[in-house]
Design a binder for these strands. Sequence first.
DNA 1: CTTAACCTTGACGTACGCGTTAACTTACAG
DNA 2: CTGTAAGTTAACGCGTACGTCAAGGTTAAG
Lengths: 162, 162
Amino acid sequence: MATRRTPTLEPESQEQAYLQIGEVAERTGVTQRTLRFYEERGLLKPPSRLDGGFRLYSEDDVRRVEQIKRLQSLLGFTLAEIKDMVEADEVKMQIRATYRKDAAVSERRAKLLKAKEVTQGQVAVIKQKLTALQEMQGHLEEKLAQYEGWIEHLAEQEPAPQ
Amino acid sequence: MATRRTPTLEPESQEQAYLQIGEVAERTGVTQRTLRFYEERGLLKPPSRLDGGFRLYSEDDVRRVEQIKRLQSLLGFTLAEIKDMVEADEVKMQIRATYRKDAAVSERRAKLLKAKEVTQGQVAVIKQKLTALQEMQGHLEEKLAQYEGWIEHLAEQEPAPQ
DNA sequence: CTTAACCTTGACGTACGCGTTAACTTACAG
DNA sequence: CTGTAAGTTAACGCGTACGTCAAGGTTAAG
């Protein structure tokens, strides 16, 4: 028997805990196919590879997958929309990385402004959904109160239903 | 020229303002194909028809279409999920209609309890999405604050960016 | 009765988001 | 070195949510 489940490249010194695609799939609840598909569509950056070609994902990648799932299932965004959002996140990471470097001030400023703009757009979208959801919640809870009233009313009319 | 745009069966006494499919499509922003498709899938009850076979929609139907659109675009529900929700609404309507009738008390009670249950389920789903959205909003606004801080910092460092 | 606008039911096409083989390679325990 | 679990690419398939003709019937105005 040849059981292998340890994440290959298991360093004694904890440089980075790299995960193969199966582990990532298990932890995130998506299939391997989905992970490769997201990579195809540009939602996940091409991960590093083992010499043989096996994909090696970082913890950041895992977090991104979870973020994608949230955006998709909870908020109903399409993969195209999600791609825009994660690309915005990429820009942010780049800004953080190059912030102290010798880039022109105007360039850094422009990037920051763009990141801010993108984020504001995201916030706007979310706020729209929030208000719509709250409105719906209000309506539903009104109805719930009605039902409860009616049920009580029935209970009074006929106290012993069987 | 034969221009027709008035909703056929235009009664002087306002019994009901029935609309043909084109009007409904225009008012709701969905296509006629979509309306027929929703009917196929059970999201819209088969509307009444003109003698020639033309569909005649009520204002209630229009409201339902708008509800469907909200559930779909804002909350990302699938048509199957939406069907469950509108079926729950149907149950509610039926309850209202038969509430004063001579149905057995236990039956009415059961229907009310079911309606309450369904509605509670809907509220639960919405609450989940609400909290997820609020969390995301929090994260994004944190980031926004950071960006703004950085931008200010840049402005101080080099006051005249030209 | 003619005509234009509007409608009807198929039926096929399409974009998205993966699922599912198939055929093959790689990694590691024994 | 070998067997097996895990991974790889390529390609076709499928359900959802409609779009898009096609071919024809209906309505109302002139």
